[in-house]
Design a protein around this nucleic acid. Structure first.
Lengths: 348, 348
DNA sequence: CTGTTAGCGCCTTCAT
DNA sequence: ATGAAGGCGCTAACAG
């Protein structure tokens, strides 16, 4: 009942192999034959059987994208950019590749599970986004899995995540440390001396790097790094709100807050406003990432712009073999300080 | 070199069939045998070949999700919710299903292309999100394709999109008309008489329904529907900005603006602010959807909350056969008016 | 440029 | 509860 390649071949009066060749391009076929085949395909309303091709060719047109949560614009923008570059020509069967998006919630277990699932699908490539967990056993497990994937011919790209040495994975990392240093440096230059810091979850690379940058800037200015001024939380609005309440309790004299990211910064703004504090007159606030909504905050959010779309696009191209990996398989993308209305000279 | 089912079978001293049965659950296998097989799987580090299973079983573990753009939180939230419900048990091989997210940009051509690609993958289900285009030929083409998919056993769910009669697709639609009516009604109740309306792209169902609701509210209040007060645009911030500039030019006396969605509303707010107008004192602004950032606008955005997460979760469950479709295969999810600071009584 | 021939790795009746 | 055997639909050498 279901139309197969053989049916098309019969109707076009050619061999199945020829039909296959026509459908997959990439092979010399006489124009007249091709037309006949295409006509038969059309008339029969034939649709190639993906699993069968994948089995025979030992590779699929699937590209896995691991994200913490696709509902988060940070990952949405990355995923969108990756996708925009994996379609089009270059592969088999019209070269259309499909993106398999996996929400991992940042959990290494789920990351591993999804990598296995993608391995099972014989994915052509896998892009891992977002910071990694800094737990040795987990990191090792992920590395082992990545190694297996690359060994099996799957291209693995780390996008916005530190390199995984020995895995054969290409890494496009963000310069979180440098960005954070610039940002805190900016606040210090404005005259701030008591800076609250809302950091992300402890065990993540992103958190550590941003925190290190922050501390480097403090150190460079000869400022003490008061541990009471740093609070850890998640990368969400609520964390920003709660951490700010806590920071204000601990240090009512702070004049600025650097948040783990833009979302957290919005939560911080909300808490400040509720405490009757004005932004930036009483307290300056800065975010990180430069997500689209930051510009519509009032005042607009000072932040560090990460080249998300660029990174995603590049990851997509590398994953599909349309762009050469960077030399050494590792490259770092810088952020750009975006000074806007939410930061200003401190009060008094 | 690559380990296969047969290798596992040999090592566990059972037949390939038994290994298959163990791996796919859903079949009586002696506990001792199962354990032996699982042990062999582990020792051999065996990973099932997805394409091969899919070919043999004539169905895959892939679920397609069509979105306009995954970078848009509206779709990100839907996709995230869908995904959260398609994993877990219920299917073959651990029941893990993977989400294939396709950006269509709302273009019917790309929608069709991606549906074909998913058909090629023998996707277990497809969820289409976002409003549909109201172009007869395109609508017919999409319907035909959906029919083919359902005929082939693929579950098709429309999420936030009107029913497609005769296709066998389940529809979970949002009550855009009712939501818009409430929203405009709210503004009229506040005393507004000159309401600007920034509508979405002309040829979309979502746009039409929201516009109809708006007009119904106007009519119910005996207000004239001045065509100059409606401007069409896209569902993005820039459209909101530009449309507002245009509306202010056409009708400097307007006291309220209802936007196509929250993103558009933010663009409108920006334009108003740049024109020196205060929100809501001079002009009230309302959005639609209730995306997370709306609450952080200053003042927070009055809007209509759509049950995105609920709709997505339900779509995911229906797509994976874990929930019964609604009677008649069609249901409408209501929105809820969220009155916040961006709307107030008109000036004077 | 096109046809022929073997599988790719698994599932699934049908027996036992 | 388990084994045996055939085939799912396509691609990839080889020939020619």
């Amino acid at each position: 009942m279901t139309v197969t390649l053989a049916d098309v071949a019969a109707r076009a009066q050619v061999s199945p192999a020829t039909v296959s060749r026509v459908l997959n391009g990439k092979y010399p076929v006489a124009a007249s034959t091709r037309e006949r085949v295409l006509k038969a395909v059309d008339e029969l309303d034939y649709v190639l059987n993906g699993p069968a091709s994948a089995l025979a060719a030992a590779t699929s047109d699937l590209v896995g994208i691991l994200v913490h949560d696709i509902a988060d614009p940070f990952f949405g923008i990355l995923a969108s950019a990756i996708q925009s570059e994996i379609g089009g020509s270059g592969g088999r069967a019209g070269g259309e590749r499909l993106a398999v998006v996996c929400n991992t919630g940042g959990s290494p277990e789920r990351e591993l599970t999804h990598l296995t699932l993608l391995q099972r699908q014989r994915a052509a490539a896998v892009v891992l986004t977002g910071g990694a967990v800094e737990d040795a056993p987990h990191a090792a497990a992920v590395s082992t899995k990545l190694r297996k994937l690359t060994d099996a011919g799957t291209r693995v790209v780390l996008c916005g995540r530190p390199p995984a040495p020995g895995t054969g994975a290409i890494a496009l990392d963000f310069d979180n440390r440098g960005g954070a240093r610039q940002l805190t440096g900016h606040l210090i230059a404005l005259g701030h001396r008591r800076l609250g810091c809302i950091a992300g979850p402890r065990e993540r690379t992103t958190t550590r790097h941003r925190l290190e940058g922050h501390r480097e800037a403090l150190a460079a200015a000869g400022l003490e790094d008061d541990p009471h001024l740093t609070v850890h939380g998640h990368y969400d609005r609520r964390s920003g709100y709660e951490a700010t309440v806590e920071l204000l309790r601990r240090a009512p004299d702070l004049t600025a807050i650097v948040a783990a990211n833009d979302t957290v910064a919005l939560g911080a703004c909300a808490a400040l406003r509720e405490s009757g504090l004005r932004i930036p007159e009483d307290v300056s606030v800065a975010g990180f990432d430069d997500l689209p909504f930051g510009i519509d905050a009032v005042p607009p959010l000072t932040t560090v712009r990460l080249p998300l779309a660029e990174a995603g696009a590049r990851a997509g191209r590398i994953a599909t073999g349309r762009e050469e990996p960077p030399p050494g398989g590792i490259t770092t993308l810088r952020g750009e300080l975006m000074v806007r209305g939410s930061t200003a000279v401190p009060r008094r």
